[in-house]
């Protein structure tokens, strides 16, 4: 393995054995399958996928919390399963959307305690705590009991806990989940500032917010149903679709027009259709811009009025639709109903 790699996985897989009732046979759930990733030192690497895609399972394996059922993974040069003691001093993790921490301790006490578990000298730990809390705008809350913090502030405290030990590799699992817009912005800025301060620091971020992945990550792996479908820079991923012309169209009621009818048109490479109270919103991917005229003609035949039309640049959501065949929201819905 090259020394420049912070994370490397090879054919990594994880199967959960689900317990049913006594009469039922055990079912198996494939959470990860054949995952091959190489993350360079200094990279901000994103894992993008819907809920249940396998992102958290992958983070749990990489942070030594869970054993893989196949393949291997190395973090900071050490095998996560065979040498967890070598991995742990060099990593840290923050999970979003949860209110972990000892509510009866103050913010400073919570953070100081974790710094001591990592062997950070007490004086240095206190200096870091003060500086990091100032960066996330929580310095005035240092002596507040963490049970008295709002969910957002508690999450910020946990984010500081992750950064406090200055890990070589930091895992952020949905760090902005449940935060308001302002707090999200603060956290994203904080992440970028932290990485900028030391080029050797590596950060693996999982998110199901497309914009977050696009804005923050050097490279993104799109993951769904336990498999990595694509891995590249956000720009390169979007360029895959650059050959297509993308249109957002708002129309009056559809008068019998279906998504399948649109997909059946030879010029249409992808189509999603969402019905609204006043009509429908269409997202079309066309082989060429000129093909739009034929689509408009189809609308005219069905007596459908075009109320708004916009050409747009491809996003990571389009990349996901291109790879999976449906949007991330639709994939989450189908996953939860399966």
């Amino acid at each position: 393995m090259s020394n420049s790699l912070a994370i490397e996985t090879q054919d990594l897989g994880r199967i959960y054995k689900l317990r049913g009732s006594r009469k039922e046979t055990r079912k198996e759930l494939v959470a990860l399958e054949g995952v091959n990733l190489k993350v360079e030192r200094g990279e901000l690497f994103g894992l993008l996928g819907p809920n249940g895609a396998g992102k958290t399972t992958l983070i749990k394996i990489l942070t030594t919390l869970l054993s893989p059922t196949s393949g291997w993974a190395r973090v900071a040069g050490a095998d996560v399963h065979a040498e967890p003691e070598s991995v742990r001093p060099r990593i840290n993790m923050v999970s979003g959307g949860e209110s972990s921490g000892y509510g009866l301790l103050t913010v400073r006490e919570n953070l100081w305690m974790f710094s001591q578990f990592y062997g950070v000298p007490s004086k240095e730990a206190n200096e870091r705590i003060e500086a990091l809390l100032a960066m996330v705008g929580m310095k005035d809350r240092m002596h507040t009991k963490s049970s008295d913090l709002s969910t957002g502030l508690r999450q910020k405290m946990n984010i500081v806990r992750g950064f406090l030990t200055e890990p070589d590799v930091l895992f952020l699992d949905e760090p902005t989940l449940g935060l308001d817009v302002g707090a999200m912005r603060d956290v994203r800025r904080f992440i970028l500032d932290w990485l900028k301060a030391d080029k050797e620091r590596t950060l693996l971020l999982t998110t199901h917010y497309m914009m977050e992945a696009d804005e923050l990550c050097d490279r993104v792996a799109i993951i769904n149903k336990g498999k990595v479908l694509a891995c590249d820079t956000p720009t390169a991923l979007k360029q895959r679709l650059q050959k297509d012309a993308l249109f957002e169209i708002q129309v009056s009621p559809l008068n019998g027009l279906t998504q399948q009818m649109l997909v059946d048109q030879p010029e249409v490479t992808k189509a999603t259709l969402t019905e609204t109270e006043t009509g429908a919103n269409l997202s079309l991917s066309l082989v060429e811009e000129a093909a739009l005229a034929r689509i408009i003609n189809l609308f005219t035949q069905k007596e459908i009025q075009v109320m708004n039309l916009r050409k747009r640049e491809p996003t990571l959501e389009d990349v996901f639709i291109d790879l999976v065949g449906r949007s991330m929201a639709e994939e989450e819905k189908s996953g939860s109903s399966e």
């Binding site: 030594t64 919390l65 742990r88 921490g101 000892y102 062997g119």
Partner: peptide, 13 residues
Amino acid sequence: HYKTLKYMYIAPI
């Protein structure tokens, strides 16, 4: 209760 066990487990302790 505190949901901290996983953070203890990944710490070098």
